[in-house]
């Protein structure tokens, strides 16, 4: 995404392609699986419509979830996140989201495209989605923390060194996608793949548990700093969060595959 051109500038829509829409959608996650909806292959169709005058560009994105029963709350989050992601592309004026074959597709499609709040689209819901999103972000943070900590253990850091790390200790090298960490009087340093650390930072920031550049990087489930004596137990708890999200991903992948075979008519239903 360039992000530099003013949105809706006449003539700029020529740069909007299916690929640029997909790239924007990379950042939209299935909140339960903590994976991109692009990677999960939920997206069925992307249509870019330009008004004859060339002054308006509308993007229509249709997606299908692994079951008609997928949580309407999660479906809503993906639909609204996708709408904002597409509308943030330079040259796109508006996005229309179409959730297909879902038990609540009408409520979701109407509500999301009209920009209404969840509680209005579903009057019988007991409120908004903030709490659900916070819970899912929290679980994703724990799972990502597991990966980040494993990477640091593999690189040779000790539990005591890991619990004492702060964001300020991370030295990002943009040339080789690695993060360097120097300890003590900089006499000892390690280098790790940047991805797991950055993915952790992103979710920890979303959850709001990073308090400052020189405060502890990793946290207990409740957000407190980690006492070294708790390190191993915490590692196991975060491991179970990781296994959970992986397992559910496996279930959804299989359901997704079966459902698509049925819908495409290659199955036996």
């Amino acid at each position: 995404m360039s992000g530099s051109e003013p949105t809706g500038q006449p003539g700029s829509s020529g740069s909007v392609t299916e690929q640029s829409v997909r790239t924007a959608l990379d950042s939209v996650l299935d909140p339960e699986l903590d994976r991109s909806i692009v990677e999960l292959e939920y997206i069925e169709e992307i249509t870019i419509e330009r008004a004859p005058s060339g002054s308006e560009t509308n993007v229509r994105m249709a997606f299908l979830l692994p079951t008609a029963w997928c949580s309407p709350a999660f479906a809503w989050m993906m639909a609204t996140d996708a709408k904002s992601a597409i509308e943030s592309i330079s040259g796109v004026d508006s996005a229309e989201i179409v959730l297909r074959d879902h038990m609540h597709e009408t409520e979701i499609n109407t509500g999301v495209n009209e920009g209404r709040p969840f509680g209005e689209a579903f009057p019988d819901a007991d409120g908004g989605l903030e709490a659900v999103r916070a819970t899912l972000d929290h679980k994703a943070r724990l799972a990502r923390q597991y990966d980040a900590v494993e990477a640091l253990l593999d690189a040779g850091l000790s539990p005591a060194q890991i619990v004492a790390l702060t964001p300020a200790d991370l030295d990002r090298d943009t040339d080789d996608d690695r993060i360097h960490i120097y300890l003590g009087d900089r006499s000892f340093g390690v280098s790790v793949d940047a991805d797991p650390i950055e993915e952790y930072l992103e979710m920890a920031t979303a959850e709001g548990c990073l308090t400052g550049e020189t405060d502890p990087l990793f946290r207990m489930p409740d957000g407190d700093p980690i006492d070294e004596s708790m390190f191993e137990l915490l590692r196991r708890r975060t491991r179970s969060a990781k296994v959970n999200v992986n397992s559910q991903g496996t279930v959804c992948d299989a359901l997704n595959e079966s459902r698509r075979e049925m819908i495409e008519g290659t199955g036996s239903r």
Binding site: E32, T67, W69, C70, S71, P72, A73, F74, H104, F118, G119, F122, D124, A125, D126, G127, G128, L129, A131, V132, T135, Q248, V251
Partner: peptide, 10 residues
């Protein structure tokens, strides 16, 4: 099992 309803809760 998997989350379905009620709508805004697990």
């Amino acid at each position: 099992g998997p989350t379905i309803r009620p709508l805004n809760k697990d």
